[in-house]
Design a protein around this nucleic acid. Structure first.
Length: 488
DNA sequence: CAGCAGGGGGCGT
DNA sequence: CGCCCCCTGCTGG
């Protein structure tokens, strides 16, 4: 720099940034997006999500509302929590058995560094990609040149990979070219420090691995290494890189475009974090509590082999699902945020019913990780999560009987109504949005009627007068009660 | 009494 | 179909 110019470097910038972000998340401060997952709601920041995932980035680009709610269906809460920790802190600990699931979820959400290469500046990546794409096959067979992956266990990996003949992935990027970057410790990047762990990975992203590879990979890792249950997933670490590499190529773009189901709606603050398909109305307004911990028990439920198998099957099956799901099941991409009414015109089978076989299949495919339950997918309210939050259905059999009143169903809970607008207000109970604000105080609510009743408190208005005495009540029910006195 | 939430009906587009 | 309004029931303080 020119003379007289000083380069000020904040040594702890990265650590501080990470810490503050985590803190903000814990305190749910400045959060501007809610991620709903299997009955739980997580208040997070668009900035962080979009920084760590193109998927989220696209969602936000296409979602005008200020505080969208993204409903994730094929991701389980423990996975989401782990991924959030990963995004906010750059690292997360995950049980080895859960790794496959986690990666799978990361793929779905296109989490950089886990499922998607943490792309370096475009110009660079593009050029490289082009040149390398041709060599994809080569890379595939030896994708880890530079990874310092756990050398111990990867022998089988390699075998598996070489044996597979994957479709060439469009997303090849081989930053493998040695020597590219090194550790994130370089000072110049201080601004983006909190993310740079990931960025350091880009060097190894060879996204061209086929699913099969992934399979092999997982199996190998999970089985061959009797290692401790906990695997440290550090972004800088080889472990992650390896996984990432393997997963990257799953047509993530498709996912983004066709939209996993997510619905978004405006919401303010409080969301029900109580989980479970059916919401207890009384608990709905409880502040959402973020649970930073990965739930180990959940992870255990699924044996590794299964997870691996699913992981394998998932991506490939998913594409079809994704592209086809929109129409048939009525999943819609961005819809239902406060601007609209959140209801979807779909004809999904009501609980537990008739999803056509093909649809069922697709649904199954969508349950990326863990919950592939065959035909029963649609039967559990909580599993409907992926669908846009509000949905409507014509007939239970999906045939749309010509004049049966349309049923609008909430896909978060079992609530149904024939009134579209009722669904809308009902959804407020899930999103926490309270559009009606009192001009006199900070009170706000979800019903205009209730607001009016509330305002009477301020105005002192008591519209309900007793016909027998001067008594007046602010609530009709009060007058009713009062009238009993006269009747007696 | 205050607040919440579901249901029904009317009206305008 | 969406919006608005009203009614009602329930809960908790």
């Amino acid at each position: 720099m020119a003379e007289g110019m000083l380069s000020l470097s904040w040594n702890n910038h990265r650590a501080t940034f990470c810490h503050i972000l985590s803190t903000l998340r814990e305190k749910e401060r400045y959060t501007d997006v809610t991620v709903a997952c299997d009955g739980k709601f997580y208040q997070v920041h668009k900035l962080v999500l979009s920084t760590c995932s193109e998927y989220f980035e696209k969602i936000f680009e296409n979602t005008p509302c200020k505080h969208p709610v993204i409903v994730l269906k094929d991701v389980q809460t423990d996975e989401l929590e782990a991924l959030l920790s990963y995004m906010y802190e750059g690292a997360v600990s995950v049980a080895q058995n859960d790794l496959a699931r986690l990666i799978k979820a990361a793929e779905v959400l296109r989490i950089k560094g886990l499922a998607v290469p943490d792309e370096p500046p475009l110009s660079e990546s593009c050029s490289k990609r082009v040149t390398q794409s041709r060599n994809a096959s080569d890379d595939r067979s030896s994708p880890h040149p530079k990874r310092r992956r756990r050398e111990e266990s990867n022998t089988s990996l390699q075998g598996a990979q070489t044996s597979t003949s994957p479709p060439a992935s469009p997303r090849v990027s081989s930053f493998e070219s040695e020597g590219e970057t090194h550790h994130s410790t370089s000072r110049t990047q201080s601004d983006s420090r909190w993310m740079d762990q990931r960025s350091s990975e880009r060097e190894d992203q060879s996204t061209d691995h086929p699913l099969d590879d992934r399979l092999g990979d997982h199996t190998a890792t999970s089985r061959s290494s009797p290692t401790p249950p906990q695997v440290e997933v550090m972004v800088d670490e080889t472990l992650v890189k390896e996984e990432m590499v393997d997963h990257v190529d799953n047509s993530q773009d498709d996912i983004v475009d066709s939209g996993m189901d997510y619905g978004s709606m405006g919401s303010d603050s409080r969301l029900d974090g109580s989980g479970g398909g059916e919401e207890d109305p009384s608990s709905q307004m409880l502040p959402n509590k973020f649970e930073p911990k990965i739930n180990p028990s959940q992870g255990q439920a699924q044996q590794l082999p299964d997870a691996v198998v699913e992981a394998l099957a998932g991506p490939s099956g998913m594409q079809g699902w994704l592209s086809g799901c929109e129409m048939p099941t009525g999943f819609s991409g961005l819809e239902g945020y406060s601007g609209g009414d959140g209801s979807q015109d779909v004809h999904p089978p009501p609980q537990g019913q008739p999803v056509s076989q093909s649809q069922a299949h697709q649904l199954v495919g969508l349950q990326a990780v863990g919950q592939r339950t065959g035909g029963s997918v649609a039967s559990r309210p909580s599993q409907v999560g992926l669908q846009a939050i509000g949905q409507r259905t014509a007939g239970s059999d999906g045939t749309r009987p010509s004049q049966v009143p349309k049923i609008h169903r909430c896909s978060i809970c079992a609530y149904t109504t024939t009134h579209g607008s009722h669904l809308k207000s009902h959804l407020y109970t899930h999103t926490g949005e309270k559009p009606y604000s009192c001009p006199y105080c900070s009170y706000s609510c979800t019903h205009g009627t209730n607001l009016r009743a509330h305002i009477r408190r301020h105005t002192g208005e008591k519209p309900y007068a007793c016909t027998y005495c001067p008594y007046r009540a602010a609530q009709k029910s009060s007058l009713k009660t009062h009238m009993f006195k006269h009747i007696e």
